[in-house]
């Protein structure tokens, strides 16, 4: 089990240390409607049940980028935005209405990049209520000097 530091200080975090988790309420249709409008991603697959059924998905699925938005929040609630250098994810499973996403992050390594900047490499993921990983990726965070 990863150790979670309280209060969390990313500047002293070591490999294996875990970020505080971010638990979101269940995905509702209005969650997807709001994300559709706010994100500008108007793909009907996410808000139009008829379209989603015709596409063979049964019902609407959440935008992958909604999960990545939650993952980003997990990082930035404890890191200044300007310290984020890289952020990537793979989308591994569909998120459906009622799914409850929890995001976790854990330090993989401390390293110096090509410019000699000390950085953290962090594994970050979003999972559903049954533990099914919906999205998993990595972030690189620049550490302050000293």
């Amino acid at each position: 089990m990863a150790k979670t530091l309280t209060p969390f200080d990313y500047t002293t975090a070591q490999p294996g240390d875990a970020w505080p988790t971010l638990a979101m309420p269940p995905v509702a249709r209005v969650t997807l409607a709001l994300y559709c409008g706010a994100s500008g991603d108007h793909n009907p697959l996410h808000v139009d049940s008829d379209f989603a059924r015709a596409a063979g998905l049964g019902d609407v699925i959440a935008h992958g980028m909604l999960s990545m938005g939650y993952m980003g929040r997990t990082l930035t609630q404890h890191v200044p935005l300007g310290a984020l250098r890289e952020f990537s994810t793979r989308f591994l499973a569909m998120t459906r209405i009622g799914d409850q996403i929890t995001c976790t992050a854990q330090v993989i390594a401390r390293f110096n990049d090509a410019q000699g900047q000390s950085c953290l490499r962090v594994a970050v993921s979003a999972a559903g209520q049954n533990g099914e990983v919906k999205a998993a990726g990595e972030a690189v965070i620049a550490l302050p000097p000293g």
Binding site: N43, L45, F51, A54, A55, G56, H63, G64, M65, M68, L84, R85, E86, F87, S88, T89, R90, F91, M94, G137
Partner: peptide, 14 residues
């Protein structure tokens, strides 16, 4: 075709 498309991966470099 839009109905066949899923988002597989996404990465950012800031």
């Amino acid at each position: 075709e839009l109905p066949k498309v899923l988002h597989g991966e996404q990465s950012f470099v800031y």
